[in-house]
Nucleic acid binder design. Sequence first.
DNA 1: TCTGGTGTATTGTAATGCGATAAGAGTTAT
DNA 2: ATAACTCTTATCGCATTACAATACACCAGA
Lengths: 263, 263
Amino acid sequence: MGKGDSVVEERVKGDSLMVGSVEKAFRILEVFTQSNMSLSLTELSALTGMNKSAVQRFAHSLERMGYLVKDPATKRYRLSVRVLELSAAFVTSNDLISRVTPYLLHVSKETDETVSLSMLYDKDIIFLSRFMNRNMLHTDVVNGTRMPAYCTAPGVAMLAALPRQRAVAILNGSDLRRYTAHTTCDVSALIGKLDETKERGFATAISEYFLGDISIAAALLDASGEPVGAISVGVPDARYSPEAAMAKFAPIVMTAARNASLK
Amino acid sequence: MGKGDSVVEERVKGDSLMVGSVEKAFRILEVFTQSNMSLSLTELSALTGMNKSAVQRFAHSLERMGYLVKDPATKRYRLSVRVLELSAAFVTSNDLISRVTPYLLHVSKETDETVSLSMLYDKDIIFLSRFMNRNMLHTDVVNGTRMPAYCTAPGVAMLAALPRQRAVAILNGSDLRRYTAHTTCDVSALIGKLDETKERGFATAISEYFLGDISIAAALLDASGEPVGAISVGVPDARYSPEAAMAKFAPIVMTAARNASLK
DNA sequence: TCTGGTGTATTGTAATGCGATAAGAGTTAT
DNA sequence: ATAACTCTTATCGCATTACAATACACCAGA
């Protein structure tokens, strides 16, 4: 590599094994989002902070590898279907998914609502599997969608099952943004939620991230009691009061989570 | 980079813009499959053909980027959930998926069988979206699963909608393996299938890839008549004869595909 | 305890990726 | 029409970065 990019330098500093080009390649891929569906070289340069030449080389390389496609007419890049291949490899090799899917299906049929499996990743949750039933709200929440742990039911369920110290560390490290008027953004209030969750065995998020969305979740534990995921049910508040939703779905979610847990 | 790896050299030769490290990084990611769920450094080295040092650096870099995780006990690497983030970005930014999903749901409800949306990628199809209904067979076929176009119903449906010359080029470039006793592996026979498909408006694959699997598909066309995807319905032959399945599902699939097409 | 195998760390070397620059293509404004 | 502008594509000498060999550390089994 040449002189290196300042952002890369900072991230790579002190890690002699880190290959800067890997970071650059993924920095390019990661700026493709729902709002940045297709990007030109100059846009990529602006979004990644990389110079024109680097963007040119890495976008070209990613295209040759099949992970980006370039519209010959507009010269704009997009993500290619091929990125799904990686996710398929993950999904088919993940034993949590294969073990929990039958329980998800059961909950899905029993509730006739949207049922999800999610995991903790850093300070966020990532959805692994979703079964949409009724009028599917939030079609932009799909497998792989990432949301902050602190303001989602599965996130709180998993945090509550974590040793308190680690949970608090995650909360303190989180960017506690107020997504709606109902978002709990205060660390001590959040710790209170963890206590409540631990006590009753399930977590809720009432319009904390999406307005009108009631979500109820319970953590999945591995043999050592560590939370490895969460099962959740989501309903619109138009059809259920928070209390009614809890009364109806919490027992189902908790039972499924207990059965699908290894402890 | 240093002297470079022989395999990379060959692939990169004559492409001054190709960054070898990008190829190496993805070569590592791509060897993680269902049968290679977790891999050690030496296994990675063997599978990728890269030397120990390179594997060490790239696996480390990918771990730092969050796309691999390393078990601290076994020192083995796995794909991380984070690969799903890329697929989520693709899915939410793909307008084919958002446009066709309502039709898929409709077909799913009408048939109560497994319904899929797929796209052509190189000589293969890749599944974009699946709605499993009944007793879901082949749980290892998920979003992102790749299969040869020539022996799958969606593949044949799309090939048939392509200008003949391009379809034949794809067939000739394909590795026409005999997956089951019913796989059509002969180019002229496959061209016959394309004719038949074009005439009747839908494609079938009867136990051509998976034994016992009957699949019926119709192509989705964009405004210029180019196939951009396919809708398919799959049923086990235990419940349907090929004729009964065609009679029942072909009209539904064709209607949905026509309505979801832009031409 | 030794031995074979694997993961980790280090280092001198030069090949590779760098980024400035210029040429080409396409678009809008004048 | 033509000019000015923007963006993409192509080129190239330089030195930073990634290379690969090697040495060390660690573990398991003999």
